[in-house]
Computed example of a mutant assay.
Amino acid sequence: MSRSRRPAPSRGRRARPKASKGESYVGRRFEIEVGPVAHGGHFVARVPIGEDSRVVFVRHALPGEQVVVEITEGTAGDRFWRGDAVSVLSVAPERVVPPCPYAGPGLCGGCDFQHVSLPAQRDLKATVLREQLVRLGGLSAEDPLVADLVVEAVPGDVDGLRWRTRQRYATAPGGGRGMRRYRSHDVIPVDDCLIATDGAREPGAGTVVETVEIGDATHSFEVAADGFWQVHPGAPATLVSAVLSVLAPAPGQTVLDLYAGVGLFSAFLADAVGPTGRVVAVEGDQTASALSVGNVPAAEVTAGDVATVLGGLEEGPFDLVVLDPPREGARRAVVEAVVARSPQKVAYVACDPAALARDVAIFAEHGYRLRTLRAFDLFPMTHHVEAVALLEGSGA
């Protein structure tokens, strides 16, 4: 798991400068009805423009609400606009008062769903994951894996708050700490980020030690202080348990752990396959890979681009594969290098629904089918969701 592979929910994205495409609509307000949730923490609506209309991706809204939307990005020549629901005229039953005073139009860009009840947040995330699997993954909406999908709560937060164990702040005007507005360089002062744990660390130099306990097994991992580690306290154990459950590794089996980070999955997989088995761990981040050597002495560790390393890896099958790619997914070169090793089972850990769906479609081209799928709410109050999928070949 390389260090830049997950989004930082506490910081707003910076807008990319783009060429003007005609008259600006920024600041204009329209009364609209809000449509379905879309991937990315916003909702789809249409604004009438003369005899035409324009798609607007609206934040701080909910499906079915009548709102006044203020356009935050958009010109006459753009295919779609972005906007904020600055006034709610009819309120959805799932709407709540945001617990954080910095959440809302024009404020901190880190949290997408502070205005949504926790159960409804998880329903929205499940909706997005289902839609991506159907639209990009080629699955049927009636498939039970899709239709019955739920996003599971994970122990370790407090009603969706106080879960972020690492937190990076920007410097506010006049000093002090702050957060960026959504898609902006602007920083607003923030006294207390409610999704951060008390004592959340800011990334820095050196290393820290993280400990994970699953059943009777406990492993400690040295992690770069500025490197990647799951920020929700319940995430590492939840994800490892899910992966072990679907793969059911047995003594003597061979395992390929791709995007292995500091060895979280490798350590527990090495326990399961024992001294007669084999775990090969590949990670692109040099620092994380070097740390995994000490964290998992039983694994064969290789640092380098995953697709490149797989291309040079000796021929021969692996029984099991773990894929935990960055946000853009594994992509075709890696997927095809994996299926070339003829694994019985592939556990895919995904942090982006669209990337997962695209890769599921590529696996399907090679006879691997999605057999199980679980989703976890590792980033409450944001649109992000984690999933663990099991793919099996036709011979499994």
Rank of each mutant, 00 (worst) to 15 (best):
P99M: 01
P99L: 01
C100P: 13
C100T: 08
P101N: 02
Y102C: 04
Y102F: 13
G104W: 06
G104Q: 08
P105M: 08
P105E: 03
L107D: 01
L107N: 05
G109P: 13
G109V: 13
G109D: 07
G109I: 11
G109F: 11
G110P: 02
G110A: 00
C111R: 01
F113N: 01
F113T: 04
Q114P: 12
Q114T: 11
H115F: 10
V116H: 09
V116A: 08
S117V: 11
S117M: 11
L118M: 13
L118E: 14
L118C: 06
P119S: 03
A120T: 08
Q121N: 06
L124P: 09
L124Y: 14
T127E: 07
T127W: 02
T127V: 04
V128Y: 02
V128F: 00
V128T: 01
L129V: 15
L129N: 02
L129R: 03
R130E: 03
E131L: 03
E131P: 03
Q132V: 13
Q132Y: 02
V134T: 13
V134E: 10
R135Q: 14
G137A: 05
G138P: 14
G138D: 12
L139N: 11
L139T: 14
S140C: 12
S140A: 15
S140Y: 12
A141Q: 12
D143G: 11
P144D: 04
P144S: 03
L145Y: 09
L145M: 12
L145Q: 10
V146A: 04
V146G: 06
V146Q: 06
A147Q: 13
A147P: 13
L149E: 01
L149H: 05
V151Q: 00
V151P: 04
E152Y: 05
E152W: 03
V154N: 00
V154W: 00
V154C: 07
V154P: 14
G156V: 06
G156I: 05
G156M: 03
G156P: 12
